[in-house]
Amino acid sequence: MDVVVEHIYLLVTVTLLSVLQNAFFAQKLEREGKGNNPSTFERVSCAVRNCMDAYPTFLAVMWCAGLCVSQAPAAFAGMLYLVVRQKYFIGYMGQTCQRTPGFLFGKRVIFFLLLMCVVGIFNYLLGRFFGSRYKQQVETITSAASALLLIP
Rank of each mutant, 00 (worst) to 15 (best):
V109Y: 00
A26H: 15
I8E: 02
F129G: 08
T57L: 11
C68D: 05
K34F: 13
L115T: 07
A145V: 06
V61F: 05
M116H: 02
D53H: 08
S70A: 13
Y81V: 00
D53R: 12
S132T: 08
A65E: 07
H7D: 07
Q86N: 13
L104P: 01
K34S: 11
V48W: 10
A47T: 11
T140V: 15
R49M: 14
V12C: 08
S39K: 14
L150D: 03
V119E: 03
R133T: 12
F58G: 00
I90R: 12
L10R: 09
G120F: 01
S18V: 04
Q95A: 07
R128D: 15
F24K: 09
L113Y: 03
V5R: 06
V48Y: 13
G91M: 04
L104A: 07
V4P: 05
I90F: 08
A74G: 05
S132C: 10
G66F: 02
R108A: 04
C117V: 00
R43H: 02
L67A: 04
A145S: 14
V19D: 09
L82K: 11
V3I: 06
V12H: 06
M62I: 09
A74E: 03
Q71T: 03
M116D: 01
V12E: 05
F76S: 03
Y55R: 04
Q137F: 11
R128N: 14
V19N: 13
Y134K: 09
L29M: 11
T100F: 01
A74Q: 00
R49I: 15
S146H: 01
Q98S: 10
V14Q: 00
V69M: 11
F41S: 06
G94I: 04
N123L: 04
F130H: 15
L149H: 00
T100E: 02
F103H: 11
T57E: 05
E139G: 00
L126C: 15
V84T: 07
V83H: 01
T57N: 10
L113N: 00
M93I: 06
R133A: 11
A60E: 07
D2P: 09
K28A: 12
R133C: 10
Q86S: 11
F103W: 13
G106L: 01
E139M: 04
C51E: 15
I151Q: 13
L148H: 12
L126Y: 11
T57G: 08
Q98C: 10
